[in-house]
Amino acid sequence: MSKFLKKSTLTIGGAMLVIGVAQSAAAQQYNLGREALPEEVAAWDIDVRPDGKGLPVGSGDVYTGEEIWIDKCASCHGDFAEGSGRWPVLAGGIDTLDSERPVKTIGSYWPYLSTVYDYVNRAMPFGNAQSLTDDEVYALTAYILYSNDIVGGEFTLTNDNFLDVQMPNAGNFYPDDRVEVEMPLFSVQACMSDCKPSVEITMLAAVVDVTPEAKTDAVVEEAAAEPVAVEEVAVVEVAALDMALVAAGEGAFRKCKSCHQVGDSARNRTGPILNNIVGNPAGGVEGFRYSSPMTEAADAGLLWTSEELTAFLTDPRGYMRGTKMTFRGVRKEEDIAAIIEYLKSFEAQ
């Protein structure tokens, strides 16, 4: 650090400021940027530390947390935080960390409760971040503690009792010690010749066979031209579908799958089941609680024609103000066409 000066005063915007003698890093000033306003810092500085710094005043109980959980979290994390599909498991896993298949949950692994509050508050629900109130975050944190058997069902979490909660695995983390433990082991003269008497193959990746097939334009064309695949699907389908487009749509639909299911075993999740959607009345999936604008549009006779779906998928919230679909929209027109064709392949049989 070459630019350190023993500077006692400097000019900012014409005003003379006296810098405290405690300042160690008085360096060159460029007088760039401006002072942050307190309300600007408050808007962005939402982080919470293990010592409680940053925790807002608030409270929430397990029961309230469960209601919010079922509405906003359970579709991915399961009703009891047990996880769904490949979405994170948040409860259970106690005493598995040294086993062959450790289950790292909030209860079994996370060292600090502040991390739960901070993360839920800043990043959840997935796709609608920073939409929860402070009390809702307290309530959800309480419910997660309850689902991990760390607190009872009558528990209310507040900013006052927050630091009393002890996470079971808090003591089992230690700082990186690779420099002490591994560097000496691995910083040794390397053998260059006759290093071992024989070599055997002990494991082959081909046996596991989980490598994805390379996606290239050439391969896609090849797949679309496979007559066998077309016939197999064509037997099931009623309408004449563009199978290449359906295949492309299956890929494009992956971004929808975090909230929507299709097929025989589909369930309503964050979003409704999307079987029989194209050409049918909007808002018609049984058991799904639609937003009021969607219900109103359905009552007014909205049909999900390809045109309407295209408009909706291009800009969901622009198309329908107040829709529960918090997705930003599909950018590529060809992806929308492919998704619609894919959805057509899930019509009544």
């Binding site: 960390l97 040294d98 450790p102 790292k104 692994y109 089992n172 983390f173 230690y174 700082p175 990186d176 010690d177 690779r178």
Partner: peptide, 12 residues
């Protein structure tokens, strides 16, 4: 997470 169930942190 290491074999004994403890974990290294700040392994930057």
């Amino acid at each position: 997470l290491l074999g004994d169930g403890r974990a290294r942190r700040f392994t930057w």
